[in-house]
Simulated scan of single mutants.
Amino acid sequence: MSNDPPFDFSILDRIGAPFRHFDAGEKIFLEEDLGDAMYMVRSGRVDIITYGTVLENVRSGGIFGEMALIDDGPRSAAAMAAERTEVVAIDKAAFLAVLRDHPEFALRVMSLLATRLRRMNKQL
Rank of each mutant, 00 (worst) to 15 (best):
S2I: 11
D4E: 15
D8H: 08
D8V: 01
D8S: 03
F9T: 12
S10F: 02
L12I: 01
D13M: 05
D13W: 03
R14F: 03
G16Y: 13
A17M: 02
P18W: 08
R20P: 05
H21M: 05
H21W: 05
H21N: 14
F22Y: 11
A24N: 00
E26M: 06
K27Y: 08
I28K: 04
F29W: 05
F29T: 01
F29D: 01
E31M: 03
M38H: 02
M38K: 04
M38C: 11
M38D: 00
M38A: 10
Y39N: 01
S43I: 00
G44A: 01
V46K: 00
V46F: 02
D47G: 03
D47A: 15
D47K: 12
D47P: 05
I48M: 09
G52H: 02
T53H: 10
E56S: 12
E56P: 04
E56I: 03
E56L: 11
V58Y: 08
R59Y: 12
R59N: 14
S60E: 10
S60D: 00
G61A: 12
G62L: 04
G62F: 10
I63P: 03
D71K: 14
P74K: 08
R75I: 01
A78S: 15
M80Q: 14
A82N: 11
E83I: 12
E83G: 06
E83M: 13
R84F: 01
R84S: 05
T85R: 10
I90A: 05
K92H: 11
K92E: 00
K92P: 03
A93P: 03
A94K: 15
F95I: 04
A97P: 04
L99D: 07
R100L: 14
R100K: 13
D101Y: 06
D101E: 15
H102M: 00
H102T: 04
H102L: 02
P103F: 06
P103W: 00
F105H: 10
L107H: 12
R108F: 09
R108C: 08
V109K: 08
V109N: 08
M110Q: 13
S111L: 13
L112Y: 09
L112W: 07
A114L: 13
T115G: 05
R116Y: 12
R116P: 08
R116F: 12
R116A: 14
R118E: 11
R118L: 11
R119V: 09
R119F: 07
K122T: 11
K122L: 12
Q123L: 15
